[in-house]
Design a protein around this nucleic acid. Sequence first.
RNA 1: GACCCGUUCGUCUAAGGGUUAGGACACCGCCCUUUCACGGCGGUAAUACGGGUUCGAAUCCCGUACGGGUCGCCA
Length: 453
Amino acid sequence: MTVRTRFAPSPTGFLHIGGARTALYNWLYARRHGGTFLLRVEDTDADRSTAESIRIILDGLQWLGLDWDEGPGVGGDHGPYFQSERNEIYDRYLARLEASGHVYEDEGAIRFRVPDKCITVSDAVCGEVSINLREQGARRYDKEAKEWVEANPDFVIKRPQGGYIFHFVNVVDDIEMAITHVLRGEDHLSNTPKHLALFEALGVNPPLFAHIPLNLNPSGTKMSKRDQGALIHEYQDNGFLPEAVNNYMALLGWSAKDDQEIFSLEELQSRFDLTGVNSSNSKFDYDKCRWVNGEHLKKLPAATLLAEAAPFLTRAGIDPNDPRVPAALELTRDRAQLLSEIPAVIETIFATDVTYDEASVAKVREKAELPRILAALTDGLADAGDWSVEGIKAAIHEAAGHAELKMGALMLPCRVAVTGRTSGADLVPVLVLLGKDEVVRRLRDFGAMSADA
RNA sequence: GACCCGUUCGUCUAAGGGUUAGGACACCGCCCUUUCACGGCGGUAAUACGGGUUCGAAUCCCGUACGGGUCGCCA
């Protein structure tokens, strides 16, 4: 039997990390087993679904690289893939339930007759879970009034106005689309007996269910769209790599059972397994997510790094086509965890004016011998014969000798004079990229500025 | 509130009856680097609690506490 999994988002206007992770697990499972991953849009609630809100979700999946084999834009033999276009199919299934006496009308709505028996979900992650829907549904807790009210355990599957309800369309579509494995959030575990009852009434064997634990925010409550890291499009804006986001999402709720933390998508594909999915909720850790991104950044091929960083460079006023950019980018690999942090590391190379950081300047001015250091540096570098890493090092070394100081004593003043701050990219390569004239000019300017002050 | 699921360092997790309870992020220290980082080494830090079962429990069972979820003519 070929594995068929699906991601079935409802268009809410954003792709939430919880949804994205569900999509990832389904995608990985299908890819791992040579199966089919399909995308179905659950837009039965017409108020919320707009072309725009659907587009955002599709864009998010595309950015992550979670391509679907059937669904919007690619078609397939089990379409249409929008629930809003599948009414004729739902009508047909409803007719079957009517014929077998499983439904009845109640004030215009159609209710499904819930069986009075214990229904057991055999879940690949949670084990066996049993519920009697008739007993469970006989009363309902009114949260506002904080009291119990009588309830009809037979749940509605079609509104008086004609629209079908989630539980019903979800089951019908999983049948029609021949879904074999349903991996979804644990918030659906309590709904699953309803779905099993529908499968049984329709005489169809249910798919295998695997309810995955939820991702919580750092305070331990459900991630809302306001929580840091909740929205996929923000990862893109903030300078994350899609592969790193997939890596981190995979780690939230799944383990390869060894000590590996950094995975390429291909590795994830070959390693992902339901037995590695754990059963308790996890809290989102933005710092670790950043670290994972940094690790991926270090491994990126030069050309890819340039392509990924380009929009961020442009935004910071650096021309990605500048011939010095590839070399400059190499200086950022150990210093930036996000693409968005890259410009700050190297912008001084491309700037026409140095921006001096007050604290950094103050630190250097504490030194009594600063004028002597700057003079030695300026003269030494101006006379440097070979403007290369080795040549510059030799020149600085020589300058230190003339000033009767150690080379280390010159490096920080040089850094502040040339770049404006005490921290940044490896200094000597920066000097190389800057060019001798510019470096000497900056040293002179800083020297003059310090003499005035 | 009823029902369901869960509980190992602050966080993500490993250990499926016998380990000095392992790794990673974060944090702290040392080393390396004549700059800034990376890196290396080391440290602080966990089996929620109480009962069983067993020669032996993080691991199996029961209870309690805590957390999450579901209880719609939302998905």
